[in-house]
């Protein structure tokens, strides 16, 4: 059945796109989880939905495509990420309040644009739950560009991002430009969300950023190890999820998340067995 995937061009694009987001979503997710920003990813994915709905609305009402909906989603997501940072600054003592504001704002706008675009259609459904057949050639190249950009930036700023994530105060005192690095990071998050939406969908994109990380966190000793394990788990989830979703005719968002949860449960089980074993060993 893998041969099937490689034979048809559009399926191959979907498959390769899946592999790309299987790298970048958990890669960025590692930093998102340790910085306790998982919910921000969720808020941003809903803003992206508003952007996509806006794109679909323009397409439908004025019957011209300014840009594919992924681009309007991208713009909304990045603007939303900057807005979240501003809000977090305004409500310094209650930073998490930025999340419900942005999340509900995103859903509110989405509802309006969806209604104006004459309600639900399959395309929108694809964006909500992901799709195994929605990736066009332009989309693929857009996602490829985003992926390369994200990986290069993370590579360049790895030590700053790690230092900032582990201990923000120490990072600031030692002279790292915490604010600028953080803004760069949140924009990367927005990009990764917009790129992942095609495959996993708005509602489940934050799952692909956090579940593989949650699983690897249980067994990794260090941060780099956690990062690589997260990517490995992310890839396993995407590959099994995409193939099974395609053959069972289920949106891959659902299958990818279920596989991720199975991996998570296995890692918890592994740790239990492993820890009991060492404990027994220690008493002998």
């Amino acid at each position: 059945m893998l041969a099937d995937l490689l034979e048809f061009n559009f399926l191959r694009q979907t498959f390769l796109t899946g592999l790309l987001i299987g790298i970048i979503a958990p890669l960025l997710g590692t930093f998102i989880v340790v910085r306790r920003l998982s919910l921000i990813a969720d808020a941003l994915s809903h803003v992206t939905l508003a952007g996509i709905a806006f794109g679909l609305f323009i397409e439908k009402k004025f019957s011209f495509t300014l840009l594919p909906p992924i681009y309007s989603g991208l713009v909304f997501s990045v603007v939303g990420s900057i807005f979240i940072e501003k809000l977090r600054h305004v409500y310094k003592a209650y930073q998490e309040i930025a999340i419900p504001i942005i999340l509900s704002g995103g859903v509110g706008l989405s509802v309006i644009f969806i209604a104006l675009a004459d309600g639900f259609n399959t395309e929108l459904m694809n964006f909500l739950f992901g799709s195994a057949s929605a990736v066009s050639k332009t989309d693929f190249y857009t996602i490829l560009t985003i992926s390369i950009f994200v990986v290069v930036i993370i590579f360049l700023f790895y030590k700053e991002l790690f230092t900032l994530s582990f201990d923000e105060e120490h990072a600031k005192v030692s002279g790292i430009h915490a604010k600028q690095i953080h803004l760069l990071f949140i924009i990367l998050t927005a990009l990764v969300i917009a790129a992942s939406i095609q495959i996993v969908g708005v509602l489940l994109v934050s799952a692909l950023m956090t579940l593989p990380v949650a699983a690897s966190m249980r067994i990794a000793k260090g941060f780099k190890q956690m990062m690589f394990l997260s990517i490995l788990f992310g890839e396993i989830a995407v590959i099994i999820g995409l193939i099974s979703g395609y053959y069972l005719n289920i949106p891959p968002g659902g299958t990818i998340v279920v596989v991720s949860i199975i991996i998570l449960l296995l890692s918890i089980g592994y740790k239990r067995i492993f820890v009991t074993k060492t404990k027994v060993g220690a008493t002998v």
């Binding site: 340790v34 790690f162 000793k221 260090g222 941060f223």
Partner: peptide, 12 residues
Amino acid sequence: GFPATVFEVVSA
């Protein structure tokens, strides 16, 4: 719970 080794923390 932050998963970092002593080496990684000191590198920071």
